[in-house]
């Protein structure tokens, strides 16, 4: 099979079929994110109501590392830029360029996780464990769940990048990009909640 035929053979139904004005695959991603809003919204909402009722949590929050949190915000915003540039390259049918930008996005995720593990190991070493206080329970559960989403995004992005390098399934570059931007947007709210409001 020629390369062009090989590319044509890998166009899934969800790419070109739609009953709602947008491709089914993209609609599916929006539904995933809609469910994620409830998951993270539930955690953030319950944290906010407890935080308002317990002003002394500000003392606990003063032990989080604002510089590390700000650096991670910078890293995620930069990785989001790489993801959207990958999408732009995919629309121009330039698979190898899209794959390179996705690789940069994965690198951003890796740096984010390394900074997070540095933060956590430092905090745990100083006795700020998940059992110390409800504030720390929220901190570890919410940031941990967010970190899991980063890991899942990196794995999927690796699969999409491997395909994109060969010019296959380029529409998936936008789909994983939408997911990644959502993970970025969640962190944009977690950063002031855990690192700035002290």
């Amino acid at each position: 099979m020629s390369h062009a035929a090989d590319v044509r053979a890998h166009v899934p139904i969800a790419t070109g079929r739609s009953a709602t004005g947008i491709p089914t695959a993209r609609l599916a991603v929006w539904w995933v994110l809609a469910s994620e809003i409830v998951i993270f919204g539930g955690l953030i909402g319950s944290y906010v109501m407890l935080r308002l009722h317990h002003p002394h949590w500000a003392e606990e929050a003063s032990h989080t590392n604002t510089v590390a949190g700000a650096f991670n915000t910078f890293v995620l915003l930069t990785s989001s830029l790489a993801a959207v540039l990958a999408h732009q390259a995919a629309e121009a049918r330039n698979g190898p360029r899209a794959a390179r930008f996705l690789g940069l996005t994965i690198l951003g995720g890796l740096v984010f996780l390394m900074v997070k593990s540095f933060e956590w190991s430092n905090e745990i070493a100083h006795g700020f464990t998940i059992f110390r206080d409800v504030f720390w329970s929220y901190y570890y559960v919410t940031c941990g769940l967010h970190g899991l989403h980063v890991i899942v995004g990196m794995v999927i992005m690796g699969i999409v990048a491997a395909d994109a390098r060969r010019g296959r399934n380029l529409h998936r570059v936008e789909l994983i990009g939408i997911y990644w931007h959502f993970v970025d947007a969640v962190w944009i709210f977690l950063f002031p909640l855990f690192y700035i409001a002290k």
């Binding site: 809609a34 809003i37 919204g41 539930g42 909402g45």
Partner: peptide
């Protein structure tokens, strides 16, 4: 599409109800 906004805002509404 506008309805995607509606889907996301309905979910935010659920969070507010909670």
């Amino acid at each position: 599409e506008r309805y995607v906004w509606y889907i996301l805002f309905v979910m935010l509404g659920f969070v507010l109800v909670m």
